[in-house]
Computed example of a mutant assay.
Amino acid sequence: MTGGSQRTGNRQRDVPDLVVAGIGAGYFSRFHYDAWQRIEHCRLIAVADVDLSRARAVGVGAYDDPARMLRELQPDVVDIVSPPETHFDMIALAIEAGAKAIICQKPFCGDLETAGRAVALAETAAVPLIVHENFRFQPWYRRIREEIASGRLGEVLQVTFRLRPGDGQGQDAYLDRQPYFRHMPRFLLHETGVHWIDTFRFLLGEPSSVYADLRRLNPAVRGEDAGYFVFGYDNGARALFDGNRLLDHAAADRRLTMGECYVEGTGGEIRLLGDGGLAVREHGAAAWRPLAEPPESKAFGGDCVAALQRHVVAGLLHGETLENQAAPYLRNMRIESALYESAERGRRIELNS
């Protein structure tokens, strides 16, 4: 790591700077690179993309060859925001270049077998590999988890999320932002629903069974764009994902929360609104009261990208435990596979512990 310093009052204290390089400059990468340039003790120095003009648009060093970038710059952190089919090779390049940590976007490596090989490679090299699964870092889910842990909701028996982005109608669906959505053979769960596979695990822990009912509504899209999945828990609790990309919900920015969430316990209920605010209602009460105001940040998902990246920086600099490490993240991918199996077979799938 490169030495750096920061002035605090009249004192000068030495702090390490993490040198960061990114791979990929597609649509979502803008949120990564904006966040890196706002995080203390980090220096984003370069981005590589096969389209050099896109890499240059980030405003830092630009390369069209990630191997050359990593070899020449030897960054501490490599942030991989390239397509899933490139992930394994980029992880291998980062390890070979001596990266101290790697962050990789989802869908992680595209398939479970390749993801497992990437995990083994990183473990052999003793390099932390973190999946950029950022929805659990949205401020409303962090607060909901705090409320569950406090016991104020009693025993939580139901979590429901209604995905309603409203962007999936018509022959031109997704063309203006992420056109590759249209060609994915597995879409709703693999690209979008995996966020709530992870979020439900974050809030309620490990399910014992899963069930899915999936369908395609827009013929212009190859994969499924609507459906349900249910997590079953041994205590009788259930988590329901009700997704439909053609329908919308009441929000000025429908991509902020992507829908609405309800968390119901024996002691009360929390509701996530489309503006990112939270309301709570005690059991037996007729009225809702505010629990948390909408986030001030207008960045994607309540600035969850920066929250995840700050979490990784804190882990590297201060030894804090890292969430979303790739080895345990494979559980999300196994659950996703079980959900597709459930949809194909039309029955509930029991999960191994």
Results as ranks from 00 to 15, higher is better:
residue 148 I to N: 00
residue 170 G to V: 02
residue 198 D to G: 09
residue 202 F to H: 15
residue 175 L to G: 08
residue 184 M to N: 14
residue 187 F to I: 06
residue 149 A to R: 04
residue 141 Y to P: 01
residue 152 R to T: 15
residue 142 R to T: 13
residue 180 Y to C: 13
residue 181 F to Q: 09
residue 144 I to D: 02
residue 195 H to K: 09
residue 151 G to I: 03
residue 157 L to D: 11
residue 177 R to I: 10
residue 143 R to M: 07
residue 175 L to V: 13
residue 202 F to A: 02
residue 169 Q to M: 06
residue 157 L to H: 13
residue 147 E to A: 12
residue 160 T to K: 08
residue 171 Q to Y: 13
residue 178 Q to D: 09
residue 138 Q to E: 08
residue 194 V to F: 12
residue 185 P to G: 12
residue 145 R to P: 03
residue 147 E to P: 09
residue 153 L to K: 15
residue 182 R to Q: 14
residue 175 L to P: 08
residue 183 H to A: 11
residue 152 R to C: 14
residue 176 D to N: 09
residue 182 R to V: 05
residue 170 G to K: 04
residue 199 T to I: 02
residue 174 Y to M: 05
residue 205 G to D: 04
residue 201 R to M: 14
residue 190 H to P: 08
residue 186 R to T: 13
residue 151 G to P: 07
residue 200 F to Q: 12
residue 167 D to M: 06
residue 188 L to V: 13
residue 181 F to N: 14
residue 139 P to E: 05
residue 200 F to G: 06
residue 193 G to L: 06
residue 164 R to C: 00
residue 196 W to L: 15
residue 142 R to N: 07
residue 151 G to Q: 06
residue 175 L to W: 11
residue 145 R to H: 12
residue 202 F to E: 15
residue 163 L to E: 08
residue 197 I to T: 09
residue 155 E to F: 02
residue 181 F to C: 10
residue 175 L to I: 08
residue 181 F to E: 07
residue 200 F to K: 10
residue 185 P to T: 10
residue 168 G to T: 00
residue 184 M to L: 15
residue 192 T to F: 08
residue 152 R to W: 07
residue 154 G to W: 06
residue 173 A to K: 00
residue 177 R to G: 09
residue 160 T to M: 04
residue 143 R to I: 09
residue 204 L to W: 03
residue 162 R to P: 02
residue 167 D to N: 03
residue 196 W to N: 05
residue 173 A to E: 03
residue 162 R to N: 08
residue 183 H to W: 10
residue 202 F to D: 15
residue 203 L to N: 06
residue 167 D to H: 03
residue 176 D to R: 12
residue 158 Q to D: 11
residue 170 G to P: 04
residue 138 Q to S: 07
residue 154 G to S: 11
residue 141 Y to A: 09
residue 163 L to Q: 04
residue 151 G to K: 15
residue 202 F to G: 08
residue 190 H to M: 12
residue 149 A to D: 08
residue 186 R to C: 10
residue 199 T to K: 05
residue 141 Y to M: 01
residue 182 R to L: 08
residue 150 S to I: 09
residue 150 S to A: 11
residue 156 V to S: 03
